[in-house]
Each structure stands twice: as structure tokens, then as C-alpha cells.
């Protein structure tokens, strides 16, 4: 890695004041991903601003009908927080399923959403790709077993964040600050597709930081859940994951969000499934039937056709769990 300055920020203001529009100063939260990026030499910043020293960003607060989650809340805290577990099991599960206990103890929610792709062409010094200013996506002609099946025409990375999948299902909002003030952004508008900007995964400017994740408490009758498939049982990102949030009345679905992870360059909404669920009394057989719509429009590549079957399966399972409300049966999935 290159030599860089390391500064502890004492406040959001002191952190944002140091950021530069050319991206030469980077934020470090838990440091799990950014240290990898430094060691892998995908970035060479002049300065690293540590925000773990900023007060006031580590809390989970109830404000009226919302939960405000500070950006420094760790994945372990998310996974064990009582309110998160009862109101947003999808988020708690996504956090719990990530990485390892040691990593979850330091990894933050803000850092998790902003972590860079795991694409092996992107992470390797030996391949210059669209994300790094090159002019091709090597996944198209190379081994693409872990790559996207949706939205993969330009860059075929998959978004790596598990919490992002849950947060999109839960329609979170993000509080983003810079030296001039703050803005609140709907998470649906946060992630960007490669067609819009191949070099970044979201709309954050190099001068901005996320300070809060805001979740409206779900309406009565709503349920949500998350399921992840992985190659090994620890230390692993999802091979495929899904979050479902459903509003129900008398067993009938009024509205639903079904979001696929590791499927596309952004958390991917299975809109056809969402639509098909509305007005239906969801049970295991309905779940199975509509799950086939999850892969509508998919364009699998040479090595990732297996993901079609996998997504159908985990969507069906997640829907059954949500419909039954029996979250304990997730054991063994």
C-alpha cells in the first residue's frame, strides 16, 4: 500500500471539512473494506479520516415512528438489537449472516452499504476494468460464476452488501451530510447502475458522508425476512440473497418488496414478483408459483446459469417464511 496520513475526526464537521472533491481523502469507519482496498492497491489516498472517533453516530434511536441507526452501529449490534430484531428481522438477519463474529464486531452499517464490489477482476491488480477506468468488463469473456444475472450489459459486478438488500426491501432513507448541510435520500435513489456511472456504486460525492440510516416502523400486519446462500458457513459473502417485506391484511398481501442480492450491480427488485403477490393469500404453493417470476428478464452469463434456480428457490423460501410468520423454521435453510 502507499503511504498516507491518518487522522481521527472528532465530529461530522471536522470529518467533512477534510474531504476533497478529487477523492484523495477517504473515510474509514470499521476499516474492514478500506484496508483491503489499500492493501490491494485499488485506491491510493493521501489521507484517511477515521470517523470511529466521532461521537453521536453509534446509537440506535427511536424518533417518532422511525428508528434512526447511526452509521457507526456495528453489524453485531444490529444483529442483537431488540428493536431491530423485532421490527426488522430482515436487517438483523442480513447483519448476522455476514462475515465472521470478529468482523461483525467492527464492521459498521455505513461501511457495509458503501463497501466496494468483490468482483475478482475489480479486486485484482492485473485486470484494468471499467470500474478502474479501463475499457472492458472481463467478466463477459472470463469466469463469471459469481457475477450478475440482471443489469449486466456493461459491468457485471454484483453489489456485495447484505444489509443493503434488506434496507431496500425496508425502504430505508439515508441521511447524508457535507460541509454545507445534509440531505435525506431514499435508498431507492441511492445506488446507481453502471450505465449511469461505472466507477461508483452509489450517488455519494467524495465530499459527503452518511450519518444515519432511517427506517420507518412497519405498518401493522407487515413482516419481513432475509435469506442468504453462501459457499462456506463463515467468512463468506452471499452467493445469492433475498430480502422480503410484505404488508398483509387477513393473510392477503397488500404490498410487497422482494429484493435480490448478488444478482445485479445494485440490490435488485424483483418487481414482477412484488406485483404478482398483491391481492393473493400467500402460502407455500403461491410462494413457489410466484418465485418463478423472480428471474424474469434475467440474462445469465456463461458460468452463472445456476443462479436462476437458486434465486427461485430462495425467493420461494423467504416468501413462505414471511407468509407463515414462523421465522424459527429458517433453521436449515
Amino acid at each position: 500500500m502507499n503511504k498516507f496520513e491518518y487522522v481521527n475526526a472528532s465530529s461530522v464537521k471536522s470529518a467533512t471539512e477534510q474531504l476533497q472533491s478529487d477523492g484523495s481523502v477517504r473515510i474509514k469507519a470499521g476499516g474492514i473494506d478500506i484496508l483491503d482496498e489499500l492493501k490491494e492497491r485499488t485506491i491510493n489516498p493521501k489521507r484517511l479520516v477515521n470517523i470511529k472517533t466521532v461521537g453521536g453516530l453509534k446509537e440506535i434511536k427511536e424518533v417518532k415512528d422511525s428508528l434512526h441507526i447511526g452509521t457507526l452501529v456495528t453489524l453485531s449490534e444490529l444483529a442483537s438489537n431488540k428493536q431491530v430484531k423485532t421490527l426488522f428481522p430482515a436487517l438483523a438477519e442480513a447483519a448476522l449472516g455476514a462475515a465472521t463474529p470478529q468482523i461483525r464486531n467492527v464492521a459498521t452499517i455505513g461501511g457495509n452499504i458503501c463497501q466496494r464490489p468483490r468482483c475478482w477482476y475489480y479486486r485484482s491488480e492485473e485486470f484494468s476494468c471499467l470500474k478502474k477506468g479501463g475499457n472492458e468488463c472481463h467478466a463477459h469473456l472470463g469466469d463469471n460464476r459469481f457475477h450478475a444475472i440482471f443489469g449486466n450489459d456493461k459491468c457485471a459486478m454484483v453489489h456485495p452488501s447484505a444489509t443493503a438488500v434488506a434496507l431496500v426491501a425496508l425502504q430505508a432513507k439515508l441521511k447524508i451530510e457535507d460541509t454545507k448541510g445534509h440531505r435525506i435520500v431514499e435508498i431507492d435513489n441511492f445506488f446507481v447502475k453502471p450505465e449511469e456511472n461505472a466507477k461508483a456504486e452509489n450517488i455519494l460525492k467524495p465530499t459527503e458522508i452518511i450519518t444515519e440510516v432511517i427506517l420507518a416502523k412497519p405498518a401493522v400486519g407487515s413482516r419481513n425476512f432475509y435469506i442468504k446462500l453462501k459457499e462456506k458457513q463463515s467468512f463468506d459473502w452471499p452467493m445469492a440473497d433475498v430480502a422480503v417485506a410484505m404488508e398483509m391484511a387477513g393473510g392477503v398481501c397488500k404490498a410487497a418488496r422482494v429484493v435480490l442480492g448478488a444478482a445485479a450491480p445494485v440490490p435488485w427488485r424483483a418487481v414482477a414478483v412484488e406485483k404478482a403477490l398483491v391481492g393473493k393469500k400467500v402460502d407455500a404453493s403461491v410462494a413457489e408459483e410466484v418465485s418463478r417470476l423472480a428471474i424474469e428478464g434475467a440474462k445469465p452469463m456463461s458460468h452463472n446459469g445456476y443462479k436462476l434456480k437458486v434465486f427461485e428457490t430462495i425467493v420461494a423460501r423467504a416468501l413462505s417464511v414471511v407468509a407463515s410468520g414462523d421465522f424459527s423454521s429458517k433453521e436449515g435453510f
Partner: peptide
């Protein structure tokens, strides 16, 4: 995993 004689997964994460 290989491409053009190069190793794609030379790390413990993949």
C-alpha cells in the same frame, strides 16, 4: 479460477 493464465481468486475471500 483462471483467465488468460492469470489467477482470479488469489485470496482467502474467494
Amino acid at each position: 479460477a483462471w483467465k488468460d493464465g492469470k489467477i482470479l481468486n488469489n485470496r482467502l475471500t474467494n
